[in-house]
């Protein structure tokens, strides 16, 4: 996507320059060729391919069915509370996750809209009052990541961060319940 963009950008700028340098051939391109070539032939295949790929990818990222481990993330101004399969609930802005398996996070909120985001692990999902949203994440290996609120939620929005501790699947199962895979 990045490479394609650079190419298209370069193409437009070069054409603009050529219009002024006035090499002979460029002034012989007919109006129809400009419109059809630049406006239709060039962008349509690129866009169709790109959107198609993105949709297929998007399908794969969806939480189809249920994962063995689901964790509830509850946001309130301005901290996070996480509940685990075994029934533990921990306030204190630390999320524990098993590595190597997909995990569904059920995101809810106490008050205003927040968003759950761990940049290194994937996309974000909003916490909307009155609704429960699900996002599926998978961490490849154990380690520490950080996550944060990504929807502006008032004065404490800057500091509404949390730590993500990813454990091996066995450790996680032992501490928080749920089946290890």
């Amino acid at each position: 996507m990045l490479f394609g963009s650079i190419l298209l950008f370069a193409l437009v700028m070069v054409l603009f320059a050529l219009a002024y340098i006035r090499t002979g051939w460029i002034s012989r391109i007919t109006p129809t060729q400009w419109i059809v070539g630049g406006g239709l032939v060039l962008p349509i295949p690129v866009l169709v391919l790109l959107t198609g790929t993105a949709l297929v990818l998007g399908e794969q990222l969806l939480p189809h069915g249920r994962t063995p481990v689901t964790i509830e993330a509850h946001a309130a101004r301005w901290n996070w509370t996480f509940s685990y399969p075994g029934g533990t609930t921990q306030a204190g802005d630390v999320l524990h996750m098993p590595a190597g398996q997909p995990v569904d996070i059920l995101v809810t909120t106490e008050d205003v809209i927040h968003a759950f985001w761990v940049p290194r692990l994937g996309g974000k999902i909003d916490a909307i009052p009155g609704h429960t949203n699900t996002i599926r994440l998978e961490a490849d290996r154990p380690g520490i990541y950080w996550g944060q609120c990504a929807e502006y939620c008032g004065i404490g929005h800057d500091i509404m961060r949390f730590r993500v501790e990813v454990h091996s699947a066995e450790d996680f199962a032992a501490r928080f319940g749920g089946e290890a895979r």
């Binding site: 169709v48 959107t51 949709l55 998007g58 399908e59 969806l62 939480p63 189809h64």
Partner: peptide, 14 residues
């Protein structure tokens, strides 16, 4: 044709 095409396959409720 293009914008409505996803109606044929994309997940409708998740």
């Amino acid at each position: 044709v293009l914008t409505f095409f996803p109606a044929t396959f994309a997940s409708a409720c998740i």
